[in-house]
Each structure stands twice: as C-alpha cells, then as structure tokens.
C-alpha cells in the first residue's frame, strides 16, 4: 500500500514538472512582451529580460500615434459580429450535416471540406473583385462575410455532434419538440463545452485576422489593431516599445475570453443536462 502511494506521488510530481515546464515555455514569450513594454527599443532588441523605465514613454508614443479607442472599437465590432454569426451559422450546419445526413448532402460536405484546402493567398484577388461588385470595399461587412460560414467550424461541430447522445434527441421528439426547438433548447446547452471551444477559436481568429482585413480595408479610420501593429512594426527604425504596448493590449481581450470560457471545460456536459 505504501509503495503504491509513493509511486502515485512520484508520478504526480512528474506530471506537475511536465506541465510546469510546458506552462513556463508557453508563458515566457508573453512575459517577455510585458517586460518589453517597459523597455526602450534598443533594450528590447538586445533581449533585456528585466523591467525597465520606458513604460510611460512607450505608452505615450503608442497613444499619440494610434487612435486607440477607435481602432479597438473596430476590432471589437468585427470580432463580435463574426463570432456570433459564425457560431450560429456553422453550428447549425455542422449539426445539420450529422443529424440529417443524406447521400447528396454528404457529397456537398466533402466538397465543402475541399474549400478548406486551398491557400487563401490564391483566393484574395477573386474575392476582392467580388467585394468590389457588392460595393463592400472598405467596409467591416466585407471583413466579416467570407468568414461566417467557416468550413473549419462546421467540420468541428459535425465531429463533436457525433458525441451528442442520440437518446436525448429521440426523447425530445417523443415530447413533440420541433427540430429547431431540439437544436436551440437541447443541443446548444448540452454542447456547451464545444461551443466554448469554438467561441475561443473563432474569437481569436477574428481578432487576430490580418491578411484579408488588410486587403479590403483602405482608410485609417477603418483599421483594426492587428493592421496598426503591423504598420508600427515596419518602420526603418521600428519603435518596438510602442509595438509591445500595442501587442500586450491586443492580447488582453482574447485572454479575457479564454478565462471567461474555460469554466465550460471544467463542468462536464452531463452535469448540465440533469
């Protein structure tokens, strides 16, 4: 019994060491970013690893060069609209493909997965022409529209739906619930952890998206935070101090979302149904 307990303790020490190292390696660059925000550009380039005194200077540079409220509002607007619409439309489709499978839809599904495979760089020019025809150049709608029906998220929801208990649906049908009621009243609450994961991923992707917003957004007042950081970082002598301020600020919303959502991973799915 004692040897079993010792073994147990040793293995749990190993687990903590492993996770601790993983966590340290993961967190290190983030710490470096925060430290960087307090250092001058030349110290940042030298890789200085201690806090400096340039925080106020860096923040002043950042906030005088960047209309921060407007830029963050633009990013927030795009991200929130994109996240809500993507979760709704893509989860409907993922559920639909899995539950109402038919031979024809199965073929469409395969075709849809194929669209994931083409590199975005190859689509930018045709997509830009299309947006032009819709008169959507330099609008936030043009940023959001192509991402809303995400084959990637549909794929994810379909795979996760495979774990959705069949009995629940059958029971709901017996109770006389309509298909849309089953989806909104049963499926959505039950699949909370799936939605939470998708929420984090979609939010993060939308918040950090770069290439497409860059192409369709034309004026300063429409830009997102990612675009602003990119142009700050491209000077002949980039002010990395200001870039770090921007980067830290730009990371906070996603981190906040992660903190808020991770509760959903802890509570099991079955608990929520009872």
């Amino acid at each position: 019994m004692t040897s079993y307990g010792l073994k147990q303790r040793l293995s749990s020490v190993a687990v903590y060491i492993f996770l601790g190292v993983m966590a340290f390696l993961s967190i290190f660059p983030f710490l470096w970013m925060i430290i960087g925000a307090t250092n001058t550009t030349s110290d940042i380039i030298k890789g200085k690893m201690s806090f400096g005194e340039a925080l106020v200077v860096n923040a002043t540079t950042f906030f005088t060069q960047v209309d921060a409220p407007l830029i963050f509002w633009n990013s927030a607007k795009i991200t929130i609209i994109a996240t809500v619409l993507t979760l709704l439309i893509s989860s409907l489709a993922g559920y639909g493909f899995e539950i109402f499978a038919s031979r024809f839809r199965e073929k469409l599904y395969t075709l849809m997965l194929l669209t994931l495979m083409i590199p975005f760089a190859a689509l930018m020019i045709p997509l830009f022409m299309l947006m032009k025809q819709f008169g959507l150049i330099n609008t936030h709608l043009a940023v959001v529209l192509p991402t809303v029906a995400s084959a990637f998220i549909i794929f994810y929801f379909r795979q996760s739906t495979k774990a959705f208990p069949h009995e629940l649906r059958d029971a709901a049908r017996v109770d006389g619930l309509k298909e849309w009621q089953i989806f909104f009243l049963i499926y959505m609450p039950v699949m909370r952890s799936t939605y939470a994961a998708a929420f984090i991923i979609v939010f993060m992707t939308a918040w950090n998206s770069y290439l497409w917003p860059l192409i369709v957004l034309q004026s300063n007042d429409m830009k997102t935070i990612t675009l602003v950081i990119s142009s700050l970082g491209s000077a002949y002598y980039p002010d990395y101090g200001a870039v770090m301020i921007g980067t830290v600020l730009a990371t906070i919303p996603t981190l906040f979302v992660f903190f808020a959502m991770q509760r959903q991973f802890v509570e099991g799915m079955l608990g929520s149904v009872k």
Partner: peptide
Amino acid sequence: VDFAKADIERK
C-alpha cells in the same frame, strides 16, 4: 494612410 511596406505592395 500608413501601412507596412509589404502591406502596401499586397494591397
């Protein structure tokens, strides 16, 4: 309007 150099070429 300022963009990064590579960004301008892309746009």
